[in-house]
Amino acid sequence: MMRIFLVRHGESEWNSVRRLQGQADIDLSARGVAQAEALRPVIEAMAPDHVLTSDLLRARKTAALLGFEDAVRSREFREIDVGDWTGHAIADLIAADEEAYRGWRAGTFVPPQGESWHDFRSRTLKALTDACDATRDRLLVVCHGGVIRALLDGLLSLPPKRIIPVGPASVTVLALSDGHFRLESFNFSPNGPVFDAPD
């Protein structure tokens, strides 16, 4: 049986102020560093034999704090591109057009110049499938909350409107057996669950 460990990066500087970042290359906050350090023993116990990371700084730094400075970088595991919404405060987006923001969270609305949910899901699913083909038993992917939700949609038919935002520095575990994926753990953090994680 193969297991896939999906880790969202620790809190970023823009997460801390609820600013939508998409593919903007934002660093971890001090709290995000502490969150990643707290998760390290959990990931060490899982003993991944192949490690990939999004090439964005917040994911790369999280991978390094987990003990994987040499993790293979992949653009395909980047967060969804939010286009013209990049850098905007979430509260401002909701105030301007709550229906559009809720639609984006549900995967049905695309911000101007942004990436569609369908394309995002296809991109991340192909990247994971390729990674699984190159991995023996335990794959770790350090990425973004949107990536994890897209993979759960693509692999388990859990649409984004039915999944809460993924907590910073949390791990979600999937098992692959006989060609089928199953969810073994979702949103686990050694600091406890986060129910209102920032996008």
Rank of each mutant, 00 (worst) to 15 (best):
D130N: 09
D84C: 04
G154K: 00
P190W: 06
L39S: 05
E13H: 06
R182Q: 14
L152N: 03
Q21K: 11
D55S: 11
L156C: 06
V147E: 02
R8Y: 06
D137E: 15
H88K: 13
D92W: 03
C143K: 05
R162G: 15
L125D: 07
K61I: 06
R102Q: 15
D178P: 08
L65M: 04
P193K: 13
I26W: 04
E76K: 14
P41H: 10
W85M: 02
P159C: 08
Q35A: 08
A175V: 11
R136L: 14
S12D: 10
E98P: 11
F195S: 13
F5A: 04
V7E: 05
T62Y: 00
M46W: 15
R8P: 07
D84T: 12
K126H: 14
G32C: 00
A71M: 07
V194Q: 15
M46G: 10
V166A: 02
W117A: 10
P159L: 01
E99Y: 12
N15Q: 03
D178K: 14
V171I: 07
R3T: 12
S54Y: 06
M2G: 05
D153H: 14
D27H: 12
A63C: 07
A150N: 01
D133G: 14
P193Q: 13
R123C: 04
G167S: 10
D81Y: 07
S54L: 06
A100R: 11
V142M: 00
V173K: 02
N187W: 06
K126Q: 15
L57T: 14
S170I: 03
P41T: 11
H180L: 08
L6V: 01
V166P: 05
L66P: 10
D25C: 13
P193E: 14
G146V: 01
L57R: 15
D55P: 09
V173C: 03
Q23G: 08
D27M: 11
V141Y: 05
R18W: 09
S122P: 09
G32R: 05
D199F: 15
A71C: 08
G146Y: 02
E98T: 12
V141N: 03
S16N: 09
R3V: 07
N15G: 00
R162S: 15
D137M: 13
I163H: 03
V194R: 15
A95F: 05
D196S: 13
D84E: 10
I164V: 14
A38T: 11
